[in-house]
Simulated assay, not measured.
Amino acid sequence: MLKQFAVMALLAIPGVATAGDLLCPEVEAPPAPVCVSTPHGLAYADTGEEAHRAADALGDAAQHYMLHFGRAPVGTLILSTDLDPLVANDHARAHGLDYAQVWLPASAKRAMTERAMRQAGVDRAGITRALAGAAEREAVTLRHEVGHAMYAAMYWPDAAGASLQVRYGTPAPDWLDEAVAILMEPPEAQARHLESFIDAAKHRPQTIPGLTDFLQAEHPVRSAALARALSRGPRSGSGVQMVVADGGEFPGVDSFYGQSLLLALFLAETSGDPRILVPISAAIAGGATFDQWLASEGVAHGLPIDVPALQALWDGWLKSQVLQRGRGGKG
């Protein structure tokens, strides 16, 4: 049921546009040796296989992003272990692209993961199990990271490519930033987030924050504990850091992604507007808070005027549409 729920939420959103064709620019020092052009941006990597993998992620993320926002920024995804993201951003802007996202090639990601796990004391069997299915997870991660980049480019273009962010991803509230990135993932990956949330909501309900707290919460991994763990883990020259930890080290991380996704789906369903994140994001990018947007625009969008009233609707929706459906995998 969870998988079907996620698919239905996606397919209910109409309207897909396409961008014009792009060409890989001829430059003396490209971000990576191989470039693949797509209607949605440029994909760079050290090998043709990796470049096509990046191109697929760009296309998939752009299609999903257009479903929810009407259009998708056009940028570049660069798989590199040593390219400075600021240099990548300069390259993107020099060629009229909206954003640049630097991530690791699959082989480098696998090597960093193995190194981090060895540092954490994981045995060989555990490492082998953890690395199984790595290619599938990496495809999801690429789409997720591109989602962050597109969202920043659309609403906070001056922050795109910055070396430091005030928030976890974009300057948006962390729940909203994560919701957008998760909406770029395939339904199967979204379902896993929902399952983690439902498990926490059923067995540890005291760990699920109410909307007043959740709307203002920082991402659970933004903590002193994570900073200490990251300082001990491997880091690529392009700035990607890695740490191995169990969920108990970062309370709430197992449910945060699912709650972020569900809140976005709840707002879309309750308002009747599958692109409700557009006016919300525009208002927040303009300096308003979510509470202020509700007070001024909530009624016009079929929503209450304040968070307490929204909480009541959320509680009922969560119970009837999510928690009861999740029992035994049946509707």
Rank of each mutant, 00 (worst) to 15 (best):
G328I: 00
R110Q: 05
S320K: 00
A9S: 12
R71E: 15
D84H: 07
V240A: 09
A264F: 07
R115G: 11
P30R: 03
A51W: 06
C35L: 05
D177Q: 00
M1W: 06
W156A: 08
H148T: 07
L265F: 12
V27R: 12
A135P: 09
A32K: 05
V278I: 04
S271R: 04
Q241K: 03
V221L: 15
R192P: 09
V322L: 00
L23N: 09
P25W: 10
A17G: 11
P274F: 01
Q206R: 11
V299L: 12
S281P: 11
S196K: 05
G286T: 00
G70Q: 04
G233M: 04
H64Y: 03
Y257L: 01
K319N: 11
D82A: 13
Y155P: 07
W293K: 01
A72F: 08
A29D: 14
V253N: 02
A153L: 10
R118D: 14
L265S: 05
A295Y: 06
P205M: 02
M66K: 15
A111G: 12
A268G: 11
P220M: 02
M66G: 15
L10P: 08
D60G: 15
T47E: 01
V36R: 09
P234R: 00
T270N: 09
L104K: 02
A189D: 08
R235M: 10
G41K: 09
A43R: 06
K109W: 13
L265A: 09
D56P: 09
P308T: 09
E114N: 12
L58N: 07
G302W: 07
S107A: 12
F214M: 00
G298R: 10
V122N: 04
K330A: 13
E249A: 14
M184R: 10
P157K: 08
D90T: 14
P304M: 04
A43P: 04
V102Y: 08
L313T: 01
P209Y: 07
I182K: 09
I276A: 03
S320F: 01
R222E: 06
G298T: 01
S238V: 07
D254C: 10
A229Q: 12
A268I: 06
N89C: 15
V278Q: 05
G272P: 03
A32H: 03
H203M: 07
P105N: 00
T207Y: 10
P31W: 08
V102S: 00
T212I: 05
I198E: 03
Q101M: 11
Q4W: 14
D21P: 13
A179W: 00
M1I: 15
I208H: 04
L194G: 01
P171Q: 03
Q216R: 15
H52G: 13
G59R: 13
S281G: 08
A309E: 13
E185I: 00
P105V: 03
P220T: 07
G147C: 11
V322R: 00
E269Y: 01
G286K: 09
V240E: 10
R118A: 06
A62R: 07
Y257R: 03
L10T: 15
E269K: 08
F197L: 05
D90N: 13
S231T: 13
V278K: 05
D291S: 10
T47R: 02
W293L: 03
A19M: 08
E138P: 08
L77F: 03
D123N: 11
S281M: 04
G328M: 08
Y65F: 12
